[in-house]
Design a protein around this nucleic acid. Structure first.
Length: 321
DNA sequence: GCGTCCAGGTCTACC
DNA sequence: GGTAGACCTGGACGC
């Protein structure tokens, strides 16, 4: 792949490039096979956009207070002006460069634990998934297992069915296309990717997307509840998975995170199914459109906020509250 | 080394 | 409408 164009983009401050593209706890921005160099402040990644496979080199050339990102785009084919514009729009939207998070930081001031997280992760953006299939793979592989094993399944799916890109002395693998996964048998998905009973869900998702299911952009244009209901019509996508996939603000609660959020939000003991609902209602009421940010900040700063939580609750003043 | 248990959901059959 | 049981797999654990 050769470089087709280069462009410098600003962002609404505060914007921490490093915390956004290299989140502390886990995750990735475009593909689990992207590479980040802390010393070069550069992310090499890739994405399929309007059926074109693109290599992206994103470098921070500014600061958190004065953000500036250099975007270099690599491709095997020449890109028209309109296509170049589309790439830049996509990067800008995906990294949420235009989003002013000052309202979120104001809200955080009212909640000591969230405030602590915003101090620790100052300028971090909560990036979503670049496309529906990318999101669905994460949501389905997260079901009934721990993150390490989910990551193992994701990596195997990408290695087996993703596409390798070579550019700027880097090799990365981008999200498998639904069409390519559809050619796989359920047995092969189980055997080669170790996804077990989730194989039928992955195949079903690939089939539905290939036959013209709503795109992430279309889901975003729907109301939050309509988008979630539409996702939950898909076999293998329950409430938790829909909360992960939806482009709307959400608060995905599973049995592991329920224990943590119950502790962080001081929610009374409930029957497990009721507890998840109580936490989601708490997040919706208190944080509304910023609930996704609260979720991301707390999870990525988990060790610090748990320590802070324990310290705060051990003080006599806090015990009275 | 081997067997057993369990885990960060979801579906389905059954009541 | 509510709920128990099944579902793949790999790692942890006990022996």
């Amino acid at each position: 792949m050769t470089m087709k164009f280069e462009y410098d983009m600003g962002a609404v401050a505060p914007f921490s490039f490093e915390l956004t593209v290299n989140k502390p706890r886990y995750g990735y921005v475009f593909t689990p096979f992207e590479r980040y160099s802390s010393s070069k402040k550069t992310l090499w990644t890739g994405v399929t956009l309007d059926e074109a496979d693109l290599g992206l080199k994103l470098t921070s050339v500014g600061t958190t207070a004065n953000p500036l990102i250099s975007v270099s785009t690599y491709s095997e084919i020449d890109l028209s002006d309109r296509e170049e514009e589309r790439v830049l729009e996509f990067v800008k939207s995906h990294l949420q460069l235009s989003l002013n998070i000052s309202d979120f930081y104001d809200l955080a001031e009212e909640h000591p634990i969230v405030r602590q997280a915003t101090k620790d992760l100052y300028g971090m953006r909560n990036t979503h998934f670049p496309d529906l299939f990318n999101a669905a793979i994460v949501a389905i592989t997260l079901q009934m297992t721990k993150w390490d094993r989910s990551l193992q399944m994701i990596n195997l799916l990408y290695k087996e069915y993703g596409k390798g890109l070579s550019f700027n002395n880097n090799q990365i693998i981008i999200t498998p296309s639904p069409a390519r996964v559809l050619k796989a048998s359920e047995e092969n998905l189980k055997k080669k990717c170790g996804v077990g009973y989730r194989a039928k869900y992955v195949l079903n998702m690939a089939k539905i997307i290939s036959s013209g299911f709503s795109t992430m952009q279309e889901l975003k244009r729907m109301s939050a509840s309509a988008a979630k209901s539409k996702l939950m019509e898909i076999s293998g996508i329950g409430e938790y998975s829909a909360d992960i996939i939806t482009p709307h603000p959400s608060f995905p609660v599973d049995t592991w995170s329920a224990k943590i959020f119950r502790c962080l939000f001081n929610i009374p003991e409930e029957e497990p199914r009721r507890l998840a609902q109580a936490i989601k209602e708490f997040a919706q009421t208190r944080f509304d459109k910023w609930q996704g940010y609260v979720y991301a900040y707390l999870l990525h700063d988990l060790d610090n906020v748990l320590n802070f939580c324990m310290r705060a609750r051990s003080t006599p003043q806090s015990k009275q509250q």
